[in-house]
Design a protein around this nucleic acid. Structure first.
Lengths: 159, 159
DNA sequence: TCGAGATTTCAGAGATCTCCGAACATTGGG
DNA sequence: CCCAATGTTCGGAGATCTCTGAAATCTCGA
């Protein structure tokens, strides 16, 4: 059937599904696909051009996505070993990084609740609800980094 | 001053800010505002009509939002004590519930990685990256429920 | 220093999403 | 049993977002 894949690799089905999952997590569609491409490639690194070809998207989209991803530390530029231009890859611990990003939202929620309490007081009806909320997110804010650290140590001692 | 608030309450500024934060977390704007209204109100419960008036939005939007929120367990219908129709409020532990929803994404990520490994094998270049990813999300998937349970118990013993 | 290839920026077309408003359904009281 | 008040569904206008394509910019090697 009308198969347009001529010389381009295209993402495997699991890769596209993973990209979709990342989308739910807040990434843009193309950004998620770029990440998936770098995750599923059998090369150590990819150039911007290779990414564009694999996904069948414009170089402009790749540029924007790559900018966003490096900004959050989800991919890194590799100093370019040989001749070409920019090479990219997932850094060690990319997923822990992504998780830390989620943590910022936890902090935001805690702060928002705190601000609410500042205007209602702790003992009003709304104040009690807000206090419960703040306490919960405060707890997560304190415990999540420890959880991730524990992951890092178990991984270290394995190697 | 051109103050259009005639008989409607309008959300406080902290409430609107919290709604915005919830938006980042994946909720729609109106849905987030409905949740914020129920969080900041000084009443124990609110009717759909009160929510619509407070937020200045259509009853249709309230209906849709309420449907979405009850679906995830973030608000609950209260059996209506007296005469009127439907009353709503935040249930106990709503935030833990919301967090559990986030966990589903962790599971999704883990599964996506697993599927990837199924096609690449564990020892290919991509396979190694996917394995690292799967192990990390598996770890979270195992540990996060425990973290939330610990929160629940500390809260219990306080009371 | 120059040229070719690679990358970034950006305006705008197209796709997508959101929310309203009105028609329709439902429920409880009189 | 009917009516009035409340709740739900859904089409579509408007707002928003996304991605492309092309022009501008940059960089390296010769």
């Amino acid at each position: 059937m009308s198969d347009e894949r001529t010389a381009m690799a295209a993402l495997s089905d699991p890769a596209e599904r993973l990209a979709l999952a990342l989308t739910q997590g807040g990434l843009q569609r193309m950004t998620a696909r770029v990440l998936a491409a770098l995750l599923f490639t059998e090369q150590e690194t990819m150039t911007a051009g290779e990414i564009a070809e694999t996904l069948g998207i414009s170089s402009g989209s790749v540029s924007t996505s790559v900018k966003a991803l490096t900004g959050v530390g989800l991919i890194e530029r590799v100093p370019a070993p040989g001749s070409r231009r920019e090479h990219f890859r997932l850094p060690e611990g990319a997923w822990a990084t992504l998780m830390s990003g989620q943590n910022m939202m936890v902090k935001t929620m805690s702060d928002a609740a705190e601000q609410g309490i500042a205007t209602t007081g702790e003992e009003s009806i709304a104040g009690r609800r807000l206090t419960e909320m703040r306490d919960f997110y405060d707890y997560l804010w304190r415990e999540l980094p420890a959880l991730i650290d524990r992951w890092r140590s178990t991984k270290t001692e394995q190697s």
